[in-house]
Design a protein around this nucleic acid. Structure first.
Lengths: 344, 344
DNA sequence: ATACCGTACTAACACGCGTTAGTCAAGATG
DNA sequence: CATCTTGACTAACGCGTGTTAGTACGGTAT
């Protein structure tokens, strides 16, 4: 069996040169003087033997791993509805491919010790990582930042010296609610996501909601604010409870996440209320399916693919240039008006 | 700066023992006789120094990489609508976590040479891999199989000696169409996915469609069969063309993929036709959002999460036990009847 | 008294690569 | 002629681990 890894020694032997020469040739080392003749001999030998350098050996000899990691906060259970991840992957995989890297994915989970994604860096398994929706109380993140590891956030972590790519969630949410105000709505409910205190994203969107109301001099009514949990099911149930309990009913709802909005719309329609006629709905994310819903969903477009791409490129620059300074990039959002929202 | 990796030598020095002893202690080597006293000293030293073994060095010394890869055939561009991937990830990440592995993801793309996922194995970067929707004309797959690398398919590759986890797409599609026949429909259109000849999945679903028609003695009408492309957009446009050209209109459509069905439904509704009243729709996949559509989508449930889990466990057994025989696992599907289908 | 044996360790090798510091011959220079 | 450069290579080290083959030694059996 050819179960034996062919090593650079095999190539050297076949080409009748030393292992060093093989290394020089295959890595196109600048200062090395290799005659064109032997160069070709080495290349031919490597080709014939199907030589592929042993990754671990290269790493150990001081090279980079050529692997970066993407860490996302969603547990496996919640994953299937997080289309956002796919969009980020689209952008990120493009960069990864361009740069000849590989991508490892993981979620922090409860992963203490060995399982922690912090160990990915400590064990030098990866060159750097991207963390989506970082939690401010994550100790692993602190260690990474303190350790000076190449790290890019998708989201933000106020006050920490770390590179990030993000959107202005607060302003975007405010614009979405403003859109409803412009339509004449004054009784506007809000379904945001789980109140994990350290997830800044949902909090910011809630703040944007309050900003808009405040600017319109509409008092904040906590009975109109509910917490979903990233899933359409949670949208369905929280909207249902809202319809049960709110009196009078809201005439519009701002839902801080499209997939949750899908569930909310289903709940509204199940009661034979019509969207947007009886209740207008605005979502957040502009998931690919949003425009194919019935009715097509008015929502805030987040350039998720570009977030992924920019994060990848930023991380790459950090990996290549260790002295690179931290950078914070803010991408634009855009309100996409479709048919789920309308005049009061 | 503590930019220096702490090695097992450091631990040895601090505990006042040899590096070998450190290795014995930390790996709980069976035959080694280590006194409880020094054992504790070593453990303490490792803890104090925050020692984490260098992954590459471990691999080079003959250990496994503890990394497996998931290869999926969708280009970045098509990724965002492939919720199926997220579902598979849900199951797979669970296994990966249980076994203490890491997961690397990639798509074959056009990746020749260095970029090919084949090189992941050749460079010994991973211990094994899972390939979704394998193409029979993929040369990398052949090499992997011939090379005896640990490999599990999600999907199938008839006639190849390789482990796989799959569902019976043909039977499931047949059941879905039979459901429409039972409702009294006789003019049933079909929207399946791109006719890449080597993707067996879509072909099988089309065959199931034909099986059902044939059993009901309904002639196959190629004008009622269209090719989508995995996206809601493609569902929208193919359905639109079907509505333009088919005469008389079909009273039901079998769409071989939920996300495409969403687009198709949008196209139907845009013409002020009603689902299921004017045209009944049955999808395939039972994506998490299917039951929250308007109307809720009748579809074939695929246990995608379990596909991921089983594939992971199967792969793990192949990695651990090199002599393990190939296995083919077939999971059950189930028709989920909701409101997008109804009587003629 | 000598051979033996289990306990508690350690020296040294191998894994496969990148790379630094050479070697050696041929030609150029003083 | 002696010295220096240059071209074309190679011997040998280090990366950090796992592991095999040993060493030293106190205590038993013969």
């Amino acid at each position: 069996m050819a179960r034996q890894h062919t090593t650079s020694r095999d190539v050297a032997q076949r080409a009748g040169v030393s292992r060093t020469t093989v290394s020089f040739v295959l890595n196109n080392v600048e200062g090395a003087n290799i005659s064109e003749d032997t160069r070709q001999r080495v290349l031919a030998a490597a080709e014939e033997l199907g030589y592929v350098p042993h990754a671990a050996a290269q790493v150990l000899a001081g090279q980079r791993t050529q692997i970066i990691a993407l860490i996302f906060p969603w547990t496996p259970h919640h994953l299937p509805t997080h289309v956002f991840l796919l969009q980020v992957l689209e952008g990120l995989l493009r960069v990864v491919r361009e740069k000849g890297l590989r991508l490892l994915i993981d979620s922090p989970g409860d992963g203490r010790g060995h399982r922690s994604y912090l160990n990915l860096m400590r064990a030098k398994r990866i060159d750097g990582l991207i963390v989506i929706d970082p939690r401010s109380d994550d100790p692993a993140l602190r260690s990474l930042i303190d350790g000076g590891f190449p790290l890019v956030l998708i989201g933000n972590l106020p006050g920490m010296p770390v590179s990030s790519v993000d959107v202005d969630n607060r302003a975007a949410a405010r614009a979405a609610v403003q859109h409803l105000l412009d339509y004449g709505h004054t009784r506007i409910a809000c379904i945001t996501n789980a109140p994990l205190p350290s997830f800044t994203v949902t909090e910011e969107r809630l703040l944007g909601y309050r900003d808009a109301l405040e600017a319109a001099a509409i008092p904040y009514d906590e009975h109109l604010v509910r917490m979903g949990a990233y899933t359409p099911e949670s949208g369905f149930s929280t909207m249902s409870s809202l319809l049960d309990e709110a009196d009078p009913l809201p005439t519009a709802v701002f839902v801080a996440s499209d997939v949750v909005a899908f569930g909310a719309i289903a709940a509204i329609q199940q009661r034979n209320l019509r969207v947007p006629h009886d209740i207008a709905v605005v979502g957040f994310d502009d998931v690919p399916l949003a425009r194919f819903m019935n009715p097509p969903l008015t929502t805030v477009h987040i350039p998720a693919t570009r977030l992924g791409r920019q994060a990848g490129e930023l991380l790459y620059s950090l990996v290549i240039d260790e002295a690179a300074a931290e950078r914070r990039i803010l991408l634009d959002t855009q309100l996409v008006v479709r048919s789920s929202s309308g005049p009061h």
